[in-house]
Amino acid sequence: MIKGSLTQGNAAEVIVIGGGIIGAACADELASQGVDVLVLDCQRPAATAAGMGHLVVLDHSPAELALGEYSVRLWRELAPQMPDNCAMRNNGTLWLACNEEEMAEAERKQSALSEFGLACELMCGAALANAEPSLRPGLFGALEVTGDGILYAPNAARWLLQRHAERVRQQQAEVVEVQGNRVRLADGQWLQANAVVLANGIHARELCADLPLQAKKGHLLITDRYPTQISHTLVELGYVTNAHKSDGPSVAFNVQQRPTGQLFIGSSRQFDNEDPATDAAMLGRMLRRAMDFLPDLGLMNGIRSWTGFRSASPDGQPLIGEHPHQPGLWLAVGHEGLGVTTATGSAKLLAAQMLDSPAPLELDAYLPQRFIGAHAHA
């Protein structure tokens, strides 16, 4: 149990490394339970600022479904307290089916989500055309998941860090070494706490070499402001095979309407490519795929494109818990493309372990032991 009086020389009860959405959510949750937290962030480019901010429940595994549903529910509970600049919207997701095979996937998905208590409804092609007239004609149908949403993650992270300002202190500093509950800063200073939380995405590998994290590069583009084109976040059901389960470079249609009137366009995945530069060929491939679904995109002005890196574990689930070989070092990493979605739930799971309180979900699927240490190889 980490909570308690500070020992002499401690910087805080808990040091959180990383001020993105995961680190912010962990700091917020611990502070809400009376823990004094120091958040160290060196302002490096983070997935929080690079991503789409899509709050979406996926069901590629029971663990993913459980954490996603719980986390999105927590975001909806927070929504009334969030400032307008977080741009939180409960706009729902439409999973688009191009053919009978994908419609069968929509039906399977509806069954899985409905069993978990999520509100979702199948649409025929005509109903889809009526709901989203900007889509190309001839689509087979869709699954609407009404509880999904969007938010502007950088502002949401800042809000979380400020909610309990009396207990959360922020410091701009680069951590260059971690030893259990101690960290060394770039200026040579050592800081100590009752516990350290590593929550800095793909950069966590630099501080903890045994983390099995792979970078998955993604491209995004945002348009100029236009009259509203779509009302849901639109994702192709081909995403299941084209992107999420692919081992090679892939693209899939994923577009949301921002409250500003801009269209936010994704998505792509590249493995073993950690060059932050925009890949014109990959970006072009992604945009052509988007125009297959929304033909009018070709008439719009794209004002900015950029890349980011998802931090993926081998099984797609995050590592949440104490490092098996470094007592005092806790992990909240490996969220891949669901860091914004699952930040709230991940923070609850981590805090429950750190404070020795009941966890809201079964923990085994998220514990670091499944990859780190002898147990992982049994």
Rank of each mutant, 00 (worst) to 15 (best):
G9Q: 12
G18F: 02
A24H: 01
E29N: 04
R44L: 14
M52F: 11
H54S: 03
V56A: 06
L65D: 06
L67W: 08
Y70A: 12
Y70I: 06
L74I: 01
L78A: 01
A79M: 04
P83N: 05
N90S: 03
W95G: 01
A104R: 15
S111C: 11
G117M: 12
E121K: 14
A126T: 14
A129V: 09
L135E: 04
R136W: 07
F140K: 10
E144A: 12
G149D: 03
L151C: 09
A157S: 03
Q162L: 07
A165T: 05
Q172A: 15
E177M: 09
R184L: 05
D187R: 06
G188I: 09
A215M: 08
H219W: 11
T223N: 08
G238R: 07
V240G: 07
P249T: 15
S250N: 11
R258S: 11
T260A: 14
L263A: 07
F271M: 15
E274L: 15
R285H: 12
R288I: 08
R289I: 02
M291N: 03
F293K: 01
N301S: 11
Q317A: 09
I320Q: 03
G321C: 03
H325D: 09
W330Y: 12
G337K: 02
G339Y: 02
V340K: 02
L349S: 06
L349P: 03
M354C: 12
M354H: 05
D364I: 02
A374P: 02
H375R: 08
